[in-house]
Design a protein around this nucleic acid. Sequence first.
DNA 1: TCGAGATGGTTGCAAGTGTAACCATTGATT
DNA 2: AATCAATGGTTACACTTGCAACCATCTCGA
Lengths: 148, 148
Amino acid sequence: MADGFDLESFLPYRLNRAAELISLSFSREYKQRFQMTRPEWRALAALGSVGRMTATEIGTHSNMHKTKVSRAVAALEERRWLKRRENETDRRVEHLELTAAGLKAYREISDLAQAYQASLEQALGAGAVERIEAGLADVERALMSKRR
Amino acid sequence: MADGFDLESFLPYRLNRAAELISLSFSREYKQRFQMTRPEWRALAALGSVGRMTATEIGTHSNMHKTKVSRAVAALEERRWLKRRENETDRRVEHLELTAAGLKAYREISDLAQAYQASLEQALGAGAVERIEAGLADVERALMSKRR
DNA sequence: TCGAGATGGTTGCAAGTGTAACCATTGATT
DNA sequence: AATCAATGGTTACACTTGCAACCATCTCGA
């Protein structure tokens, strides 16, 4: 069926397949150990690396839908890994920050993540990860400008 | 919080973010127009480009869970876009192939996909897509060998 | 100061998903 | 031939997700 279209070189497809594969591979490392979903880990990581943020900020930072963020934050709060602080001047927003326990968890999981990334870099060779990430950044930039 | 871990350069995270972005961006192009889910489009694309396949083959080819494939195939059949043919020598397997209507749909959507990819290539510059895909292939290879 | 719209965040609901258990069939071992 | 494991595929169930509708609060202009 030679009609010019090749799924195998269609970027959305390729990107998704690689992302699913890597995501699956890494999530196995923490899902069992920390009983945490991916959105929760993402929110934790954002808070851990950036510090105090609002829910909306977490959403834009990690490109998650606001309901995902909302539920992830609720779950982390339930675990006492984060607390909410109200903003004096605008009572709609809530500042979120990790508790001591949350920070501890963040450190453990980010250690895991670093080890994972290191093993990937090892397998891929020097500079490969940087090159790939540069490419991804280009894609994101292109999509963002496409949007409007 | 300088602790050595930077979410922004963590490959699983970056890959997922880019994939979600591009997937969202492209699915808008066909979801409304063809009322089709992503697994259905994937199965259709696999069948359209490869030709006759079994469900398992579609699964490995496009890296989809077999239940996803099963449901996508059922949906496509419901629409009369594919038909099942039994295998004489092994009655467990079913050969799947597109009907004329299915092929027509495939052509329309793959035209859309080609146009989409062309606009991306335009925005990204010559060779960029190939470089990115080469990087993705490396990642997949690394993950596959990691697995065992 | 009042109301209309914008913004931060949550929730109800319907649809999509993975896991595990399942049915049917085949292949290998005896 | 009889059995048991392996394989192709479907389905029941619980969980996750996105959309839309929602509540509360804030902003801006008449």
